[in-house]
């Protein structure tokens, strides 16, 4: 399995555990009435699960197993693959730091982080599509 795929898949597993722990924490919070602010983490839970876990695993496995692009670069640009990895995970972390706390643009720092998170995740998706598209082909 290529190094990049291992990073995507292992990071995906970390997000899988982290997302469910976050959900568990939310349920404990709701059951014990610890902190009502935990409900603000619900979108983060879903994005860690759907993006951090499922989408990241799909990217890692497709990078590894999809048909080869050509002889020179069988999997496409390795460097671009790392950019996708950085943008996706950087975006998810920025999202964790900003989304649960941001309140209608009242804090410029949190608003800026949320904007950066949105941009980074969108960039990761667009670059992944551009990289994998030529490998989705008839044998």
């Amino acid at each position: 399995m290529p190094t990049l795929s291992r990073w995507f898949i292992k990071t995906g597993l970390v997000y899988f555990v982290a997302s469910l722990l976050l959900s568990l924490l939310q349920k404990m919070g709701a059951a014990g009435e610890i902190w009502s602010g935990l409900s603000a983490f619900t979108p983060l839970f879903y994005h860690w699960l759907m993006l951090g876990w499922i989408t990241q695993i799909i990217i890692g496995v497709s990078w590894w197993m999809f048909p080869r692009r050509d002889r020179e670069q069988p999997r496409g640009s390795e460097r671009m693959g790392w950019v996708i990895y950085g943008a996706l995970n950087g975006g998810l972390l920025l999202r964790a730091l900003s989304e649960p706390f941001v309140v209608r643009g009242t804090d410029p720092l949190l608003s800026g982080l949320a904007l950066l998170a949105a941009l980074a995740q969108w960039l990761a998706g667009a670059l992944y599509v551009a990289q994998i598209w030529p490998r989705v082909k008839l044998k």
Partner: peptide, 27 residues
């Protein structure tokens, strides 16, 4: 090829909508 290329187009659309929603939260 049809299924996966369609999925990739939806990924682009989904990520674009998601980026708009997160931007709306921040700003």
């Amino acid at each position: 090829v049809y299924f996966i290329r369609a999925a990739l187009l939806y990924l682009l659309a989904g990520f674009t909508l998601g980026a708009l929603l997160l931007t709306q939260k921040g700003l």
